[in-house]
Amino acid sequence: MTQSIITQFLSGFSVVAILIIAALGLAIIFGVAGVINMAHGEFIMVGAYTAAVVGKLGGNTLVAIPVAFVTVGLLGLLIERGIVQWIYDRPLETLLATWGVGIILQTVTKLIFGPELYYVGSPKFLAGGFRVIGRLPFPWYRLFLVIVAILLLALVFHVIFKTNLGLEVRAVRRNRAIAGCLGIDTARVDMAVFVFGSGLAGIAGAVLAPIKSVSTAMGFPYAVDSFMVLVLGGVGNLWGVAAGAGLIGEAETVLSFIFNNVIGRLLVFLFIVVTIRLVPKGIFGYYERR
C-alpha cells in the first residue's frame, strides 16, 4: 500500500504540472492586471484547437506551442484593446464581460470546427512510457508536461524578475498610481500582461490537447482548476501557483487512489475551503480577498 501511494505521489507530478501550465496565464492576468478572466478556459480551448489545426497541417506539439502562444496572445490583444481596457477598474464588469467573451469564443469555435471532438496526437518521440516504481507506467508525454511546466515557470520568473517589463509589472502590481507618477505607462503594462497571460493560456491548450479530446467545452474544467490553484496558492505571487498546484495535484491524485475520484476531489475542495478560512489571502497571496 505504501509503495502504491508513493507511486501515485510520483504520478501526481504530472497532474501538478498540468495545473501549473493551466493556471499560469490566469495568475499573471489576475495578479497584475486584477482581471478575473472568466474566458481563461476558452483561451486554453483556442490554444488546443490551434494545436489541432497545426496537427492537421503536419506539425506536432513542439510546433503548436509557439503558434498557440502567438494566436491566443493576439486574441488576448484583441479582447484587451476592444473590451477589457475600458473596464479595468470595474471588477464586476470585467468578470461579466470576460464571461461573455468566453461564451462567444465557444460559439464561434463551434461554428468554425463543428461540434465533433478533435484528437491531437502527442509527438512520436514522446510515445510510450517508462516505469517509475512498481508496475505503474509513466508516459513520456506526462514527463514532457512536467518539463514544460518547469520551463514555463522559469520563463515567467525570468520575465517578471529579469526584464524591464517585469520591473514595471512589479511596480504597477504594488502601487499603480505611484508607478504612473514614476512615468510607467500602466495601460501598456496591463496590455502586455494580458497578452502574455493569454499566450500562456494558449500554450496550455497546445500541450494539454494530446491528453484530452479537443472540444469547445474542454476549457471549463481547466479554468475551475486554475481558479482553485489561485485561491489556495494566493494571488500576486508566482510561488503561490506552484504551491497551490502542488498541493491540489498531489492531494487529488493520492486521495483519489485511496478513496475514489469523487471523494478525492470532494476532500480537496474541503481542504481548500478550510485553508482559505484560516489563511484568507492564500498560502503566498498578496491581495486580501474581500
Binding site: L167, E168, A171, R174, N175, A179, C181, G183
Partner: peptide, 25 residues
C-alpha cells in the same frame, strides 16, 4: 516628478530597482 506623502516606496523592489523604475519611466 512627485515625492508623495508617506514616501510610497515600492516595498518589494530593492533600492536600485526603485531607482530603475524611475529611470525607465
Amino acid at each position: 516628478s512627485y515625492v508623495p506623502q508617506g514616501r510610497e516606496i515600492i516595498p518589494d523592489l530593492t533600492v536600485a530597482e526603485n531607482i530603475y523604475v524611475a529611470l525607465l519611466g
